[in-house]
Write a protein that binds this DNA or RNA. Sequence first.
RNA 1: GGGGGUGUACUCAAGCAGUCAACGAGGGCAGACUGUAAAUCUGCUGGCCUUGUGCCUACGUAGGUGCAAAUCCUACCGCCCCCA
Length: 395
Amino acid sequence: MGFEILIKDKKSQARTGILKTAHGKVRTPVFLPIGTRGTVKSVRNDELHDWGAEMLLANTYHLWIQPGDELIGRTGGLHKFMNWDGPIFTDSGGFQIFSLGEKMAKRNGPDNEEPAPFNVRGKDTGIYFQSDLDGKKMELTPEKSVEIQNNLGSDVSVVLDEFTGDLNDFEKVEQTVERTTRWAKRAKERFQKLKTGGQLLNPGQLQLGIVQGANFIDLRKKSAEEISALGFDGYCIGGVAVGGETQDKMLEAVDLSLPYLEEGKFRHLLGIGNPENIVQAVARGCDSFDCVIPTREARHGKAYVSHDNGYQTLNILKPEFRDDFSPLDKNCDCYACRNHTSAYLNHLFKSGEILGIRLLTEHNLRFYLNLMKKIRKTINDGSFEKMVKNYKNRP
RNA sequence: GGGGGUGUACUCAAGCAGUCAACGAGGGCAGACUGUAAAUCUGCUGGCCUUGUGCCUACGUAGGUGCAAAUCCUACCGCCCCCA
């Protein structure tokens, strides 16, 4: 178990590597399709496998609420429950503290003590949620997150963290950095206790720490140093692309974090991103990515297609596709591009047919997975720098 | 033949004297989406322009009442139902 760097790019920080997990090797740089509730929405596991998905991301929070991590643990873990033999990465629930908290604050006002139907209140011991399923009050602590991820038996687990979308509020960001470190210590302790006690459902489970700090030089450094000092199996860079910041700001946050992390360890950039974001972040030394863009936007009719040396996005619902009888992307080998026309896809989306969602989800995921293959290949053959230079979203 | 009902913007459908260029839904158009409460969400959807407590044209057709009508009255046209 662990990470091994294979080839370092000479002109950038990019590298290829292998992450060895209890369920197989992951070739990096890698993109993880998001399967929040133990399914990548609308597609089958065998399809994901065939398309070249190396590792999936599932979510601690959602599986805890439903159907419950203990139930999944009883079946032998998430791999068995969802019948996916490959590696699984679990997020800690930290993002839900942010995303659900913000949504609830908007709905109920910032100081509402008992907002309904879903209560999110941050305390230092953990986070208090009220389940939107049955109203039950639930507490997610750093320790609890570790235990849930243990019941899920994921290959790569992540510590519970906290961050804010108020990127310019130094004090607020500082608080989240400090809390993230305190929580990381607790998560690590619990994880080590389970591990040394032989209580890990997946004995090969890895645990990653998370760096926060928005775009403050001092805070990113502080966070990266403190988290790094705790000695995790790898690191996540978090709190990025959450405040509507530009790509430059997002990449700056990466640049501010990486120098303080051990070079030989696995680095995951949480929640990123669009294809250009990913290429740029690889050039800066990130090994792994996850993002809802290809799957969510597919459901909304947006397709990522090759274009010149970069890519472009198309809205399949646009009138211009009504009678476009050519394939969506002639350079793509997905099922839809080999067997259907844009006009047909347009029709499926216009008429709300579920197949349209499936086909575009496949298309976008394959676009992303093929991009990662291309990134690995160009790093290996020394042409990555050239690729980075030309790789852009071309409207 | 007798009685009753109905006609509203692309469609369905509210409104039944002024706050109506007209609720709502669908459709159409545009936009958003970055560790997924997202097959979701947000705008716009009669025309014109000097973009405004602006001007035209519009609620089957033609008249009328009234300061004011999609809303009331009359006639006509179309559609629907019931009784013979």
